[in-house]
């Protein structure tokens, strides 16, 4: 596998010999790029607009009052969580099929964002539940399924962090990832069926606020804004995940070179730089 030399906007100086002991600023530092800066600014503008619509200009709900303004976060965030899960499953399938590292990193990055947003969904949902129903939590189908989704994602992320060789880790993680969507569906069906036997109808009504007019517009704007934010987070988290693997590889190469130097080998003649061998 070859990595192409990154073409930064600045001039590239030759890398110091024998591995970088001092940080080399000739390549990109960090995970930002022109594209992500534009995306980030657009997202911030979108968030500002969505927040204004949600908090200031839209009316309050007839039943819920101002508490409905929590829905303008809750629904977009849960959409992001679901999209994240689907990307993780897709990435896992593609990794098992094509053995592509790109897809593996995508699955990992997307899963972490999905986990954060799922946890956030639950917390925001609890903030909504308390004033509406008087309790922080009810065991209704949707909340329970979302809690289970969080656990499934935590399991996936735990597999991603196991101390093992990266190919083994990716394979195990992708098996878990492939099963993520089926598990979510099976658990959701079971929980929904279970709770449908006990459903309190008053709760059922308040769970679906009637959204219309200005309120609908605020919500329908908030969802794409949230997806833009997801895209920004995904690109950055992807690059970060890539860097984490590169650091591990690099440290490993460095350790091997150091051990060989201790044993008396000349580092330059025995380590093969794949980039140099193929360019």
């Amino acid at each position: 596998m070859t990595t192409q030399r990154s073409d930064a906007t600045t001039t590239t100086a030759p890398p110091p010999a024998g591995g970088a002991a001092t940080p080399d600023a000739s390549g990109p530092i960090g995970t930002g790029s022109r594209g992500t800066r534009i995306l980030g600014l657009a997202t911030l503008a979108g968030i500002a607009l969505a927040a204004y619509l949600a908090l200031v200009s839209s009316p309050d709900d007839e039943n819920m009052g101002d508490v409905v303004r929590i829905i303008y976060i809750h629904v977009p965030i849960v959409v992001v969580a679901y999209v994240g899960c689907m990307i993780t499953t897709l990435g896992s399938v593609m990794y098992l099929w094509k053995k592509s590292r790109w897809w593996d990193v995508t699955a990992a990055a997307s899963a972490e964002i999905a986990m954060v947003t799922t946890a956030l969904t639950l917390v925001v949902g609890m903030c909504w539940a308390r004033p509406t129903w008087g309790v922080w939590w009810v065991w209704d189908a949707r909340l329970t399924s979302t809690a289970m989704l969080l656990l499934l994602l935590l399991g996936y992320l735990a597999v991603r962090r196991i101390p093992a060789e990266s190919g083994a880790r990716s394979k195990r993680a992708s098996i878990v990832g492939v099963l993520l969507l089926p598990n979510v569906i099976i658990v959701n069906r079971s929980v929904t069926w279970w709770r449908s036997l006990h459903q309190d109808t008053t709760i059922l009504n308040t769970l679906q606020p009637k959204i219309h007019g200005d309120m609908a517009f605020a919500l329908y704007l908030a969802i794409p804004v949230a997806l833009m934010m997801f895209a920004w987070l995904l690109v950055h988290r992807w690059r970060l995940a890539w860097l984490e693997e590169e650091v591990l590889d690099h440290d490993l190469d460095q350790a091997i070179t150091d051990r060989r130097a201790e044993a008396g080998f000349d580092a330059r003649s025995t380590t093969v730089d794949i980039g140099e061998a193929t360019s």
Binding site: M148, L152, G155, V159, I162, P163, N183, V187, V191
Partner: peptide, 19 residues
């Protein structure tokens, strides 16, 4: 075969078995 197997297995398996 993993060093963390004792803690990983319940975390993975029990949510899956909730149905």
């Amino acid at each position: 075969g993993l060093r963390v197997r004792e803690t990983l297995l319940p975390l993975l398996l029990l949510p899956v078995l909730s149905p």
